[in-house]
């Protein structure tokens, strides 16, 4: 006879939804992409700056170098500033349009499985079938595969509950 270890019911707020989208994208973006883009950005920035001040040329030449410098800045700041801004704006628009459908969820953690019940969806799977459990700053993401996830905001969990979830699911658990 299994007993419910943790049961949580909550309503998804706008803040929850925005945090989920940001942290999910942060997790799904490969680290090497960020590194490569930073390297490209730094290279463009350094070469552009050196040529701009070191070898003055025609107006077109200087304009091209200025574009190169700006491209460098854009590339360096893309994953930390630009992309989060775009994701946040898109998520805000989506939430404003669909918040009536987003609704509430009930999540139950058992010893061997996890259950989620929402208005239009229910899920009950053993932990071994989960792909990953990712803990972010504000959100807990339970990935059923590389792409799809269920989330719950950490604000609805007490410290003991969070500790218990970490210990039950330790094999698949990662911190963002």
């Amino acid at each position: 006879m299994d007993s419910t270890v943790i049961q949580i019911s909550f309503l998804i707020t706008k803040e929850d939804y925005l945090s989920m989208e940001l942290e999910k994208q942060h997790w799904l973006t490969p680290k090497e992409n960020k590194v490569i883009l930073c390297i490209i950005g730094l290279t463009a920035l350094c070469c552009g700056t050196a040529a701009f001040f070191g070898r003055p040329g025609s107006l077109y030449h200087q304009f091209g170098l200025l574009l190169l410098i700006l491209t460098g800045f854009y590339a360096i700041s893309y994953y930390d500033l630009v992309k989060p801004f775009l994701i946040k704006k898109q998520a805000e628009r989506f939430y404003e349009k669909n918040h009536r459908n987003i609704g509430s969820q009930i999540v139950r953690f058992y010893e061997d499985r996890f259950e989620m019940t929402a208005e239009n969806r229910s899920l009950h799977i053993p932990y071994r079938y989960l792909y990953k459990i990712v803990e972010g700053n504000k959100i807990l993401l339970l990935f059923t595969d590389k792409n799809e996830s269920v989330f719950l905001p950490k604000r609805v969990l007490s410290e003991q509950q969070l500790f218990r979830i970490r210990s039950i699911c330790h094999e698949k658990y990662v911190h963002l």
Binding site: I125, R128, Y129, Y131, T144, K146
Partner: peptide, 9 residues
């Protein structure tokens, strides 16, 4: 990769 990572699909 998504298919391989999923036990549900």
């Amino acid at each position: 990769h998504i298919y391989k990572s999923s036990r549900l699909l």
